[in-house]
Amino acid sequence: MFRRRRRERERAAPVAEEASVPQRESGPWDADEPHPEGERVDLGGMLLPIGPGFEVQLNVAGDQIVGAVILVDGSALQVHAFAAPKRSGIWDEVRGELKREVTASGGTAEEVEGPFGVELAARVRQGEALQPVRFCGIDGPRWFLRAVISGKAAVDAEAAATLEDVVRDIVVVRGDHPMPPKEPIELRLPPEARQAMEQQAAQTGRPDLNPFERGPEITETR
């Protein structure tokens, strides 16, 4: 009798609907989630938005491209993508490391609330002067994006808005292969830049041309 009543109560209990996962309203985006179309440079591990007057330079470590810099109107945005654990972010840890590095080199760093959450408002020593820099971090699904804003945009809200919109529109292509946390997600030259490099090498007769001697650049002008 008790078993029958328990079964009846179970049948009568309403079945909870699975909570739907809300879609984010802005990026940076993961390549596997829905994201708005836009004009972006395909760097392999990252799709980087470009706009009028943007100049893009690539950061190189050894023979690998590990980051990109956007220069526009006296401001700079440097972005790097890293692998991260599946179930936890690393920005809290990375932020602490950055704060210690900045202060150890004679600069200052303060945690403040920014458009992407907690960020570091820092003054980084360059020679005898201290330059304002913003360190922003975004934890994504199995990746972490670090954005460093310097120049005019570090202190001017209107100038910063342009670069913040770039960060919001970045698409990170993490891939499915295993990577240890904090390992840079490798980037690559876009096809048109690689083709230009190969053509230059053919014309100069230098097949061993190093495209990173002066730093690869992609300029968007309209």
Rank of each mutant, 00 (worst) to 15 (best):
S150R: 09
Q195K: 08
V166T: 05
L163Q: 03
Q200I: 01
V166E: 02
A201Y: 03
L130W: 09
E198H: 04
V172D: 08
P141Q: 13
G175T: 01
P132W: 03
V133P: 02
V166F: 01
I170V: 14
V171P: 01
V172A: 04
G140M: 13
A193E: 03
G151V: 08
A160D: 01
K182Y: 15
I149Q: 07
A153R: 06
A129H: 09
R125A: 10
P190M: 03
E186N: 09
Q203M: 14
V171D: 03
A157K: 15
Q126W: 07
P132K: 07
G151R: 12
L145M: 11
V124R: 11
R134M: 04
L189G: 00
P191D: 14
P141W: 11
R142T: 11
A202V: 02
E128G: 09
A157Y: 13
P141N: 12
A157V: 07
R125S: 05
D165R: 12
M179R: 15
G175H: 06
E119Y: 13
D165Y: 07
G140W: 04
A154D: 02
G140A: 08
V124N: 09
V124M: 00
A161T: 09
I170A: 00
A121C: 01
K152S: 14
L120F: 06
A202K: 11
Q199M: 13
A201W: 00
V118E: 11
H177C: 13
V171W: 05
A159E: 12
L130N: 06
